[in-house]
Write a protein that binds this DNA or RNA. Structure first.
Lengths: 154, 154
DNA sequence: AGTAGTTATTTGACAACCTCAAGCATTGGG
DNA sequence: CCCAATGCTTGAGGTTGTCAAATAACTACT
């Protein structure tokens, strides 16, 4: 009766992966809201290097979004005094973002919160956790390898 | 020099998981856009049961969002003739969504697209794929177990 | 029946995110 | 000096999301 009696291991893995990701996104989203941060804002804060000012275009790239979008996100973060715009000395067109001390404090909380594994993973056996880590590490590796050749762009 | 020399396997797994999920979300988002669907719209279409009309409140629950939000999503899907509102016979307050034939066609494409594992997973060895599937299956199991007792929630 | 309370959906106000096209300032090469 | 390219901003327009209030329909109680 059902057409989907057969699913490849990769497909099944993908299905579970998606479901776990969905739930996890909701839970962290709720926790971030308590800090007064949206998901995108937290993600941006997380990506900023505490020591190295990051041009807004670079941030846009890492957020996989349009540069004009970053303007708004930076506006809101700056309005709360979490980051600062700073024109680059060599090229006054580019504005780099630096994290303020109060931004650093919040960033620390965000990192803590987001690196905390979800219950579903924490509940796994030690062996499973280690195996999962290793397999995902290999997957990420493939990702980067593919990404490199991708940079040559269509 | 670095304070994070030690990370638990679960934390590392979480980090990789997040990164893979982020990239995957972008890629599927792009493919869905080609079908003229936003992520939420596709997700809703995916969750609807082809055979069983689903009350909008039930859909809201599965989308982890407010009921008023579903109104808008259903509006857009209905405007394109992909779903239909249908008042329940026993209780005229609840409106259930059914998928139209053209909605079914699009839903099929969405399912195909979203069940297709990302390159990063597809590139893993067979053994890794199977191990990943099994571990994630156990994680999802924990998720459901936790979810059950959650339903008692205040 | 009639009244009150509950429930499902909708509406309206508001904010964030996102993209695209157009604009502005700056830079760098002819 | 002129012109094209680059980095960011602005404005329009659309989707998502929340909350509070409104509406409609059901339920229970008198």
């Amino acid at each position: 009766m059902q057409t989907k009696t057969k699913m490849s291991p990769a497909q099944e893995a993908q299905k579970f992966f998606f479901e776990l990701g969905m739930v996890q996104r909701m839970k962290t989203g709720a926790k971030l809201a308590e800090l007064g941060l949206s998901f995108s804002q937290a993600h941006a804060l997380r990506l900023l290097d505490p020591d190295e000012p990051m041009p807004m275009s670079a941030l846009a790239e890492r957020l996989f979004c349009d540069a004009s979008n970053v303007t708004g996100i930076a506006d809101r973060l700056e309005a709360r005094g979490l980051v600062q715009r700073e024109s680059l000395v060599g090229d006054r067109r580019v504005k780099a973002l630096t994290i303020t001390p109060s931004g650093m404090k919040l960033r620390k909380q965000v990192l803590e919160l987001m690196s905390q594994p979800p219950d579903a993973i924490a509940a796994l056996s030690d062996a499973d956790q280690r195996a999962l880590r290793d397999i995902l590490a290999r997957a990420v590796e493939h990702l980067r390898a593919a990404g490199e050749s991708d940079q040559l762009g269509r």
